[in-house]
Design a protein around this nucleic acid. Structure first.
Lengths: 239, 239
DNA sequence: CCACAAAACTTGTATATACAACCAAAAGTC
DNA sequence: GACTTTTGGTTGTATATACAAGTTTTGTGG
């Protein structure tokens, strides 16, 4: 058997959800209906539903039915991931648009955060990250030119700044803050938000051995993105 | 059936692992052996093994067997603290107002998250946390009455639900998601927001050994609250 | 002893069946 | 109309069976 039947059913259901044929909280076919549609036994159809439920994609209620759970992009608080990897690991297509890559005099706040002097030159990049053609995150990043002198010559349409930086200057430390903000007009435009909506803004400052490397403002619409974390207090359950 | 057979097998195996009878990487009984020991079918024994594998407690290899996984050492990278402690550690005054403490039929989403049945009764509390007389957080919490039957009799003007729960049912696990939302009118009122502003909503689901204990929605105005974290990437040690 | 084949055992997938628990809506009753 | 009962659909648990796929052990022939 090339690919398991229950996996084919899962695939089909995931597709239906992704293309929007099955919206959030809508009912999905019952075990018996799926069994008939795919010419499998109920137990096999059940397995597909079961595993999707365990993945948090569906929720089920005995005696009622199975439904599509609220679907949002999610990244982990506990690991620092490349946004591109994150999107691709969900099976979606990733793309990015470079809006700016320049050198500019350092605003006071940035200078302080990166340990530079006021008005000293600093690298600045502005990138929109897309998940399936929909803007997921606006990345505004200031980079310490003393530590990464070649930053401004990179081609960030093929490598994310985060990935590049972690290759060039191994991170030793990172500092995060998470805020909820209402984006300004400029941000709304680039995130293709018709009306301002609540956004998550992750501020990330990274350090290498020699000090602060970069300060990034990562802004994502609250309706498209959330952060997730899983903490274990007992050494007996999953990562 | 009071408790499912596959659950009994899981319990037994968890106990064996916890007391050290089955050390790390040791082989556990095969599907057939468990089936005979517990007088169940292979499929039922298989389910116990399967679920323990999904929880990361076992690992299995086709043709070889099932084994106890390595216990994970835990570093809580991002610690989400008791709101009262947090406020007081900033040198501000903390107070709380209890708005509701009732029992109500369980909405489907809550039931699913807490492992309860639809429409089953669930405890619900609604509390506003104040920092220096200014509302900082609205806490809406659903509590599993099977695990915390006395929840509804507590005096939450003198102890936070989070603190009470962690005393009564030691947490083994917590799951968090962070979102940015625009609060509804009701939430705005209790947070004393004249105009709706972007809010951080922290959803926290806590577990004890017997399953999900509570699900809390913690909503704070973006202008008054943010989450901070600090991650260290110490050199990895590999043997 | 070695090489190879066969057997035994393990996990993985799939089916057909049965019954229990639960829910919602329809049907019946007062 | 209000209430109760029934009924059909749905998920949850459990069993017996079969075969596939992978690994280890055993056995056999050379």
């Amino acid at each position: 058997m090339a690919v398991a039947k229950f996996a084919e059913i899962k695939d089909h259901m995931l597709t239906q959800i992704e293309i929007g044929a099955w919206p959030e909280h809508s009912r999905v076919p019952s075990e018996n209906e799926l069994a008939e549609q795919f010419s499998v036994s109920r137990m096999t159809a059940r397995r597909a539903l079961q595993e999707l439920t365990e993945q948090g994609i569906l929720y089920r209620t005995q005696g009622v039915g199975s439904f599509v759970a609220a679907l949002k992009s999610q990244s982990s608080l506990l690991e620092i991931r490349n946004i591109a990897d994150e999107i691709q690991s969900r099976g979606h297509s990733y793309s990015a648009q470079l809006l700016q890559l320049t050198e500019l005099p350092c605003p006071a706040v940035i200078a302080s955060a990166l340990g530079l002097k006021h008005q000293q030159q600093v690298f600045f990049s502005l990138i929109v990250h897309y998940e399936d053609q929909l803007p997921l995150q606006l990345e505004a990043r200031y980079v310490n030119p003393q530590q990464i002198p070649d930053y401004i010559q990179q081609d960030f349409s093929h490598i994310t700044p985060h990935l590049y930086l972690s290759q060039v200057a191994p991170l030793t430390e990172a500092e995060h803050t998470v805020e909820a903000i209402l984006p300004d007009h400029f941000t709304c435009q680039h995130l293709q938000l018709k009306k301002p909506e609540a956004c998550l803004r992750l501020t990330r400052r990274t350090f290498s051995r020699d000090g602060a490397v970069s300060l990034a403002y990562l802004t994502s619409p609250g309706s498209r993105y959330r952060l997730g974390g899983h903490l274990n207090f007992a050494p007996e359950k999953r990562s």
